[in-house]
Computed example of a mutant assay.
Amino acid sequence: MNFRKATISDLAEMKELFVQTIQSVCKNDYNPDQINVWISGAENTQRWIDVIEKQFVLLAIIENKIVGFGTLKDGNYIDFFFIHKDFQRQGIANKIFVELEIEAQKYHSKIITSDVSITAKPFFLKKGFIVKAEQKNILKGIEIINYKMEKEL
């Protein structure tokens, strides 16, 4: 597995991974309406372009395929963190997370935060995050629960 920073040419593959992962991996924690609203975020291409251009976006690559990615916004906020549905539980998330923490330390960040799905919450707890609040987000009239979490560095 190799790491590299994302470029605009990675946009379509990143969005596809985002959609497929949510549809597959999160289906036990979110109902079909919630999943459909969540994946509709892939339609906002400008948001994705802004992420690639303005955030630290780290891709995990195996055989020229993106198998996971994580993003760090402003040196202290994990915005996106997704592992390909076919590459779950292989240590990829851990390796991406370590790299994001190293990047956060370059910014001298004292705390790293994220808004974490029900599905990802156990992983973040294992990485030393604590839950600061349960959040009930309303997107297109649908409630989606996630958690404001943080970790001291």
Rank of each mutant, 00 (worst) to 15 (best):
F3N: 05
F3K: 12
R4V: 06
A6K: 12
D10I: 02
L11N: 02
L11V: 09
E13T: 13
E13Y: 10
E13M: 15
F18N: 01
I22T: 02
I22H: 00
S24N: 10
S24P: 03
V25T: 10
K27D: 03
N28W: 01
N28H: 02
D29V: 10
Y30H: 11
P32T: 11
D33F: 00
D33N: 11
D33V: 00
I35K: 09
I35L: 07
N36R: 11
V37L: 08
G41P: 08
R47E: 03
I49M: 15
I49N: 14
V51L: 03
I52K: 08
I52E: 12
I52S: 10
F56K: 06
A60N: 09
A60C: 12
I61D: 03
I62N: 12
N64G: 06
N64D: 15
V67P: 01
V67H: 15
G68W: 00
F69L: 15
T71L: 06
T71C: 15
L72P: 07
L72K: 10
K73T: 02
N76H: 14
I78M: 00
F80S: 03
F80V: 05
I83D: 03
Q88I: 14
R89W: 12
N94H: 06
N94A: 07
K95E: 15
K95T: 02
I96H: 03
I96Y: 01
E99D: 09
E99G: 01
E101P: 00
E103A: 11
E103Y: 05
A104R: 12
Q105D: 09
H108Q: 08
I111L: 12
D115I: 06
V116R: 04
I118V: 14
I118R: 15
T119S: 09
A120M: 05
K121M: 05
F123C: 01
F123Y: 11
K126I: 03
K126V: 11
K126R: 11
K127D: 04
F129N: 13
V131M: 11
K132S: 07
K132L: 15
A133H: 04
A133N: 11
E134L: 02
Q135V: 07
I138Y: 14
K140T: 01
I142L: 06
N146W: 06
Y147H: 08
K148H: 07
M149P: 08
M149Y: 13
M149A: 12
M149H: 05
E150Q: 14
K151I: 05
